[in-house]
């Protein structure tokens, strides 16, 4: 997305500004909706960040309310949990990004290798479906599967004469459970992107490789995987920007408000939700949002810088 825009701005030497505009008017027109979108929804409301620095009063409005400096950030720092929360959030996201992309690539390659058409379509649809299930329902499903007294898993364990399993009072199993749930939900969707990228790889290259005697594994290793690298890196850079933003829907609905599990499942979003929804404080919530955005911004800048050092072609800018 960003790439097309920077291409449009490419200067043609010797021409005046208006001549350049005229020359690339079609391209400019094409990117106009995106530019307008970001102006309206991202830049225009940005002064609203100021709400993070005031004691917000409904009647006085954001700019009329009393300025309180960094006071709204205090509670997050005072809670003594900032580090734990940030760590949980980042670790979960790292797991989601790495495992999610790896699995998505794997699935995309498998789909690509399938010869039976109807089986390919059916399995793709099946994998895609969980993406459309609301997180609230996912939470209910998981509870009905795993709860101690009458959950599906425990009923089976009980029938087999085995000891019951109580995940809702054992914090240590949740990192694994949550990652599995996330993968179950998102893999089908993510694999489509990679599947499309595989489709985009020039068939002639694969043809040539086959003529040269490459087997299936070599085809994947030397043609498809390298072909997916740019897509992977771009998706990675996008994902890194949101690395301190947790998946509130998943965590809140699946874990709920069970303090026994907080040590491994509490992320910034869920903590802030619990702590600020009771007194309904916009300002504090915005302060946290700003904190996350600043870290996200830094992460994107750093990772882009690193990617650029390694291979400038793959960087976003």
């Amino acid at each position: 997305m960003g790439k097309t825009k920077t291409k449009v701005a490419k200067p043609k030497s010797g021409l005046s500004f208006w001549q350049k505009v005229k020359r690339s008017r079609v391209l400019l027109l094409m990117c106009l909706p995106a530019v307008v979108f970001f102006c309206v929804f991202s830049y225009a409301p940005m002064p609203g960040i100021y709400v993070a620095f005031v004691k917000y009063n409904y009647r006085d409005g954001i700019f009329g309310s009393q300025f309180v400096g960094l006071k709204n950030f205090e509670f997050l720092v005072n809670s003594g949990k900032l580090f734990d929360l940030t760590r949980n959030t980042i670790l979960y996201n790292v797991a989601f990004i790495i495992l999610g992309n790896a699995l998505a690539i794997f699935v995309a390659i498998l789909l690509n290798e399938m010869r039976c058409k109807w089986f390919k379509k059916v399995s793709q649809t099946m994998m895609f479906l969980p993406y459309f299930i609301s997180q609230v329902l996912v939470g209910v499903l998981v509870y009905n599967l795993l709860n101690y007294d009458y959950g599906f898993v425990n009923s089976i364990l009980g029938k087999l004469g085995m000891e019951k399993w109580g995940p809702y009072s054992d914090a240590s199993v949740w990192p694994v459970l949550l990652v599995i749930i996330h993968l179950w939900q998102k893999t089908g969707y993510n694999s489509v992107v990679y599947f499309a990228a595989i489709m985009g790889i020039d068939a002639e290259i694969i043809e040539a490789a086959r003529v040269d005697g490459a087997n299936g594994w070599q085809k994947i290793r030397y043609i498809i995987l390298p072909g997916l690298k740019p897509t992977f890196i771009i998706l990675l850079l996008f994902a890194v920007g949101g690395i301190v933003k947790g998946d509130f829907g998943l965590f809140y609905n699946v874990v709920g408000k069970n303090p026994l599990l907080y040590s491994t499942t509490d992320i910034i979003e869920t903590y802030v939700y619990r702590a600020t929804m009771t007194d309904f404080n916009f300002a504090t919530a915005s302060a946290v949002g700003l904190y996350q955005s600043i870290i996200g911004f830094c992460m994107v800048m750093v990772s882009n810088f690193v990617v650029k050092k390694i291979d400038p072609d793959y960087s976003l800018f």
Partner: peptide
């Protein structure tokens, strides 16, 4: 813009 969409979403 990209990373602040979330934040400014509520800002807006």
């Amino acid at each position: 813009a990209m990373v602040t969409t979330g934040l400014t979403g509520c800002g807006s």
